[in-house]
Simulated assay, not measured.
Amino acid sequence: MRVLVTGAAGYLGRAVVSALAAAGHAPIAMVHKPNAEIGGVAEVRVADLLDPDSLRRAVRGVEAVCHLAGLGNARESIEEPLRYYRVNTAGTVSLLEAMAGAGVQTLVFASTAAIYATADGVALGEDAAAAPAHPYASSKLAAEWAIDAQARTGAVAATVLRLMNLTGGHDPNPTRLIPRTLAAALGDGVLEINGDGSVCRDYVHVADAAAACVAALDHPAAPGTSRRYNIGSGRGTSILDIVAAVERVTGRPVPVRHRPAAPEAAVLIADPAQARAELGWTATHSGIDELVRDTWRARGC
């Protein structure tokens, strides 16, 4: 299948391209810059979510779209909310319009579990209430609503993947917890922790998230429908658990400084049962020691 991957030059995008190629698909990378080097692509197309003409050219001749492009910094979104709605929401609308014009009906959309503000200590099912805490999350939820509405017209069959905390491999974001903890272990500063470090999150390897995208394409939604899945390991890992794992893997101590607790959910974990049952997907690389070890190796250590 010829699959257009938006955001193909990004952290998740590169993993998805690789997974699609390994599964026998022909991934077509949509990128901003023509000189982007991405292994495994069948073709590279230069386009922008905010440029409808380039989008119309990008979707020509493809059979499906895996939509990963967008902005993803929660704190930045608080300072620049309109930019996030413009790219994440309006950009998705423009892509849907281009797909409709080209007759492309199959869509996989990478959303975020950040739309759930709290889990009250219970693993999140897809029917958990949405309560986005910042413009990044609300802009992705608004994009989901646009996809749902378009699906009801019969123009698209969509699968929405609400991803938990991506990590593993060559993670380009030094602000994520595992890269920050590894940096502290290497002597690059102190790991600052809000509160006592007991806050639990669900960490999923980027390769597992990419495999979920492939599974969604291999088990497409019915025409005229939109469905959603929570994609995570199903395990809760605290900040102190990650510190302990980094110390086990590296053999180095992690210096820690505790700051006042932040107002945030104590536990946020996905229930992946529906993805397992309907997509045949499960996280196979998302054990905490494996995540830390893989990120450590990617740093060349």
Rank of each mutant, 00 (worst) to 15 (best):
A100N: 12
G13R: 02
R252A: 09
Y203I: 03
T106E: 09
A47G: 10
G195D: 02
L166Q: 01
N194M: 11
A222S: 05
V156S: 06
A209S: 02
A130Y: 07
G7L: 04
T237C: 11
G72T: 09
K33E: 15
R75E: 13
P260M: 07
G61P: 07
C66D: 15
A183P: 05
C66P: 11
T153E: 05
T92Y: 09
G70D: 02
A142V: 01
M164K: 03
G232D: 00
A146I: 06
G234F: 05
L95C: 07
Y11N: 01
N88H: 04
R259L: 14
P27W: 03
T167S: 04
N173I: 14
G70R: 04
G251N: 10
D208N: 01
L20C: 04
N88L: 03
A113L: 08
I78Q: 14
I193M: 06
G169E: 13
G232E: 00
H258R: 15
L68K: 06
E290K: 10
L71S: 10
H219N: 01
D271A: 13
I242N: 09
R180D: 07
I239P: 05
H67S: 14
Y203V: 03
R83S: 11
G101D: 10
L20Y: 04
L161I: 03
I28N: 07
E97R: 15
A273Q: 09
L82S: 09
A273G: 13
I178Y: 09
